[in-house]
């Protein structure tokens, strides 16, 4: 149900894109208006969401400590998994954001005869996630060749390395393969495992299918139905130089690709995809475990009713005297 809905949604988007490319009057809307709107929604939505998060304080310093803390000097502490300095936190965050450190620890539990509960290596989710995210980032940056003139050298270099293996014309980018492979794994995994299927929502299938759609229409356009790449770049450059234009030669597949990309942009700030920004704001990861060294202030530290010593002594005075425990009052 959730899968079908997501599939349907992506299908409708593709159909819309096709329509946008075919109907003359709509080409400007789909080629210029929607992209502008989507980028605007993406940027504004993302900034809004981050500020919305930032408006709330982090009242307590609650890092998850995944290694030895810093205590006595002769005990080796875990500077990256349990950092107590800002530098260490930066390191931890870098590992987390760039290499998915936490997910790298992933294990798979099984209960065997005995009973024996065993925990095995499970790097597949980590590997597929890493392959997918890195490929997506590289592909995203590679696309800047359509948005810059002249194309900066580092993008050309990136293209060269990505297309190092001379496969097909135009050359196949390895990141394209990794992206599709990674996404496919993530999608199949979600459908395959009963537990995962049980927790999965439309909001989990939809982004996967959406990005898969983006990737496949892109690959389709590059390797199968060719589109006029100069026209595409003119369109893209029109957007970033605020002189919008939609060249005649740009074909329908491009519009399918574009509407999916726009949908992704516009959908992004309102979805779980915000984990991109959220991971930076996770208080269990981005705080130093220096709790007993440096004071952390809660801006709304509540006034609470306490049971003071004086009240306590008053209540138990007789018993204290009987037990020969010294009193303040004396």
């Amino acid at each position: 149900m959730n899968v079908l809905f997501s599939l349907l949604a992506v299908g409708v988007l593709i159909a819309l894109g096709y329509l946008g490319g075919q109907v003359a009057g709509l080409r400007f809307v789909f080629g210029v208006v929607i992209p502008y709107a989507a980028i605007l929604v993406f940027i504004a939505g993302l900034v809004y969401k981050v500020i919305y998060w930032a408006k709330s304080p982090v009242p307590f310093r609650i890092p998850t400590t995944c290694g030895q803390e810093t205590t006595l000097p002769w005990i080796k502490s875990s500077t990256l998994d349990n950092p107590h300095t800002t530098l260490g936190v930066l390191g931890r965050m870098a590992l987390e954001v760039l290499f998915f450190r936490s997910l790298f620890r992933n294990t798979r539990m099984e209960i065997k005869e005995g009973p024996r509960v065993v925990y095995g290596e499970n790097v597949y989710l980590w590997a597929a996630g890493l392959a997918f995210h890195w490929s997506f980032l590289i592909i995203f940056i590679r696309h800047f060749r359509f948005f810059t003139e002249p194309v900066p050298g580092f993008i050309l270099a990136m293209q060269y390395v990505d297309g190092f293996m001379q496969i097909g014309v135009p050359v196949l980018y390895l990141t394209d393969l990794f992206l599709v492979a990674g996404l496919t794994f993530l999608f199949i995994r979600r459908l395959w495992s009963p537990q995962l299927r049980y927790i999965s929502q439309a909001a989990d299938y939809f982004p996967l299918l959406l990005i898969l759609g983006v990737a496949l229409t892109g690959i389709w356009m590059r390797h199968f139905t060719k589109t006029d790449i100069v026209g595409v770049k003119e369109l893209a450059m029109g957007i970033v130089t605020f002189s919008p234009m939609v060249p005649e030669s740009v074909g329908s597949v491009f519009f399918m690709h574009l509407i999916l990309v726009c949908s992704l942009f516009a959908y992004f700030p309102f979805s779980k995809l915000m984990h991109m920004a959220g991971v930076f704001l996770s208080p269990t990861r981005n705080l130093a475990n220096d709790n007993r060294m440096v004071r952390h202030v809660n801006p709304w530290n509540p006034e609470v009713e306490v049971h003071t010593y004086a009240q306590w002594e008053e209540e138990f005075k007789d018993k204290l005297e009987a037990a020969e425990i010294p009193l303040d009052k004396d």
Binding site: F147, T148, E149, P150, P152, V230, G231, K233, E234, M237, G238, V240, T241, S243, P244, M245
Partner: peptide, 11 residues
């Protein structure tokens, strides 16, 4: 970047 390079959209 494009503003700095002063390029237009036309190919």
């Amino acid at each position: 970047y494009n503003a700095a390079m002063g390029r237009s959209a036309v190919g």
